[in-house]
């Protein structure tokens, strides 16, 4: 991490390398989201450790927050469960650190809300996150208008700040959104919260097309994607497909911790087959 810290601009990051490799393979990435500490810390770690082998290319870990205003019921419930189980920001960074002991390659992105980072202290957080092996951050309630808060400091620590583009982001606003974006672009498939209704394919394709005209960053599509068939269809025109609520549901509905691990990895294997069928050459 030191090399990245000293020269973050020129260092090829795990995210860059991952997307370059997949481009050569001509297939989209599968990005999987799970909430840290669900159903408990140990099981959560085992789930994460098995994700790459099951076919996840990029791992997103949700940082639990008590008031997740952009999340639907599934991820809300998971966050509260994690917090009740004693998950904290420090424990989430511990989880990343533990994952990195066995996996130095898979890009890992933390997703959540600003307040727990604010409280932890931005500088201290970025130091600890970079040291633990975090590659990027998605912070839902930090639009480009507040880049000074975390986005620009993150870049100085060699941590990518992944920007969300939504159906309301018009051409006029797009340059602002893209200005300090790095890692990849997260194209939000619809106006709404996570785990919502099935997105409309041709709308997303149009959005992705518009983003491509303005940015060279890889484009990931997320929100409302649950099945291998959807992953395949969206993967045809995007660089990555993000699945979250469906995986969190698989964990939540399992009756044993072993069942939870198995259910997530099974679903990831299905989704991975989906993105592999989506040749987007």
């Amino acid at each position: 991490m030191n090399a990245a810290k000293e020269n973050p601009v020129n260092a090829a990051t795990r995210l860059d390398e991952c997307f370059a490799a997949l481009k050569a393979e001509k297939r989209p990435a599968l990005v999987t989201y799970v909430t840290a500490g669900v159903p408990d810390f140990e099981t959560s770690l085992e789930i994460l450790q098995g994700l790459p082998a099951a076919g996840a290319d990029v791992i997103e870990i949700g940082m639990p927050f008590s008031d997740p205003m952009a999340d639907g019921p599934t991820i809300q419930k998971a966050a509260l469960r994690a917090l009740e189980g004693g998950q904290t920001m420090a424990r989430t960074l511990e989880l990343v650190h533990a994952f990195r002991q066995r996996d130095s390659q898979t890009p890992l992105v933390l997703m959540g809300y600003y307040n727990p980072i604010h409280r932890y202290g931005v500088e201290r957080y970025l130091e600890d996150a970079a040291r633990a092996g975090v590659d990027g951050l998605i912070v839902v309630d930090l639009p480009p208008e507040h880049d000074d808060e975390l986005c620009l400091p993150a870049k100085r620590h060699g941590v990518d700040f992944i920007r969300l583009a939504t159906p309301t982001t018009d051409v006029k606003r797009l340059p602002r959104v893209l200005e300090n974006a790095s890692g990849f672009l997260y194209c939000v498939s619809m106006n709404g919260v996570t785990g919502g209704h099935e997105p409309v394919l041709h709308d997303i394709e149009r959005m992705v097309g518009q983003l491509r005209e303005h940015s060279h960053l890889p484009i990931a599509v997320g929100f409302g994607i649950r099945s291998a068939a959807q992953a395949q269809a969206i993967g045809r025109f995007s660089d990555a497909v993000v699945v979250g609520s469906a995986l969190v549901e698989a964990i939540e509905s399992a009756e044993t911790r072993h069942g939870a691990i198995e259910a997530v990895h099974d679903l990831v294997r299905e989704l991975a087959a989906g993105v592999r069928r989506a040749a987007n050459g």
Binding site: M69, A70, Y114, V140, D141, L142, P143, E145, H146, R163, L164, A165, T166, P167, T168, T169, D170, R173, V177, V188, N191, G192
Partner: peptide, 12 residues
């Protein structure tokens, strides 16, 4: 103060 909201709401 500020505008700490998801991107979806920023244009509005």
């Amino acid at each position: 103060g500020g505008r700490f909201v998801p991107e979806t709401l920023m244009p509005l």
